[in-house]
Nucleic acid binder design. Structure first.
Lengths: 239, 239
DNA sequence: CGCGGTGTTGAGACCTGTCAAGACGTGTGG
DNA sequence: CCACACGTCTTGACAGGTCTCAACACCGCG
């Protein structure tokens, strides 16, 4: 069930059989989590990182006023707090959006990786750098894109990332977020999410019902979104 | 002149004399750049990273419509494209906001660091993770904070980061950005930046003239900004 | 002395937020 | 099996923050 994670790594660089064995050996235990809980609380001392095997999680930051901004969504195969290995504490919560299955990876073992497997270390460094690239793209969305374009962009991003993990095909994927949660990703209110979603439907770009996303016209959606996947760094090359 | 960089590292962890020597040895050459150029073009193949010794740079993403969003500001001591070491190409431009002096660090030497100096490698990994934390805080600003709060937050962040590099004292620092460029950071138009700045002045929180920033009431400014510096990870501990 | 970039101001438009109410669906308890 | 509660989705009217467009002031520089 760590397959999605290996798929994600192998999309960016070769992973030898030996390295795969090392990576599989990182996991100390596998745990199931219910939906809508804080899995990792901000500012808590960390001694392990969490690899998402199944389900959706998110990195959320809250304002004292109670407003929430989600900084990144995570799907199967993502290391949701790999950055916690060097940071030791997180500046955000990691929350479950659905029921999830996760693997725990002790920081001690990650440290050994940096000492004995520099190539894996660089690969994991790369993964956190790709997370940062996603943050930058969201910054661009929030700063300069309209609500419509922003939402279209998110749907394009999820289509690719879920596809990589084997969780999307034919431009269709399970999309478990409520409109409130979509708003927390997009910096919008739930009301405006609702209207923007209707506009995307009216334009016949997407269908979204029963938590199931179907992209009807990917080319047009990308155009509305101004979507270019280079920021996801999907080329396989030595790192 | 690499002092600011060492200060930045030493704010987060011990750096031994040996390690300092290794870090100083990373630099291949030092170059001066004029203001307002693209120092590193997005998507270009990279074989070295750039360490900013003096001046201001920024990571900028452009939309086809010509609108620009700045994702992070960089000051003396920052490795402006350390993430380029694993990414190999950038998803954004790195531009100079002022005349700058930079040091070039070949990726070959960084690779050696990951093989022979895992602790320095972890420190540099940490630095890119802190950049990502800054991205997340900006995401929160753009998604949920008002223009006033967002601007106040940026001024607080710069106060701390410049202070760390020895470029701020008594809550005063050189602030070379035009109002247009401030808008590119804050997701605002220049007109609204102007009005928001006036509001901050009217509230007697800051003075900004002749490109010189003076924070008049830091406590009040932080309150308006909802500023908490934990996201800058200023605690010194083993990484 | 004129020019270009920057800063400032005003009026009006527009995108998104706020508030409120109702529809719909699903799970639970009687 | 029905009644109800709760969360989610939807809709309308209105408010408000930010943008657009336009004009002018200021200033350093050639």
């Amino acid at each position: 069930m760590i397959e999605a994670h290996l798929l994600k790594l192998r999309a960016r660089d070769e992973v030898t059989a030996d390295e795969e064995k090392t990576i599989r050996g990182l996991v100390s235990e596998v745990v199931d989590l219910p939906a809508d809980i804080v899995a990792i609380r901000h500012h808590a001392e960390l001694h392990q990182s969490v690899l998402l095997l199944e389900g959706w999680m998110a990195r959320a930051k809250d304002l004292p006023s109670g407003e929430r901004q989600i900084a990144e969504l995570h799907v199967a195969g993502d290391f949701v707090d790999l950055h916690g290995f060097t940071l030791k504490r997180l500046d955000h919560d990691v929350i479950t959006m659905t029921a999830c299955r996760v693997a725990h990876v002790p920081h001690e073992r990650l440290k050994e990786v940096t000492e004995r497997f520099p190539h894996i270390a660089r690969l994991y460094w790369l993964m956190t750098n790709i997370d940062a690239a996603v943050h930058r793209e969201w910054t661009l969305s929030l700063g300069r894109r309209t609500a419509l374009s922003r939402m279209a962009h998110l749907f394009c991003e999820l289509n690719i990332r879920l596809g990589l993990a084997g969780r999307a095909s034919n431009n269709c994927y399970a999309m478990p977020l409520t409109q409130i949660e979509l708003g927390e990703c997009l910096g919008l209110t739930a009301v405006h999410v609702n209207r923007t979603l209707q506009e995307l439907r009216r334009l016949e770009l997407v269908e979204l019902q029963q938590r199931q996303m179907r992209i009807l016209d990917l080319a047009a959606l990308k155009k509305v979104a101004d979507f270019d996947p280079v920021y996801l760094y999907l080329d396989k090359r030595p790192r």
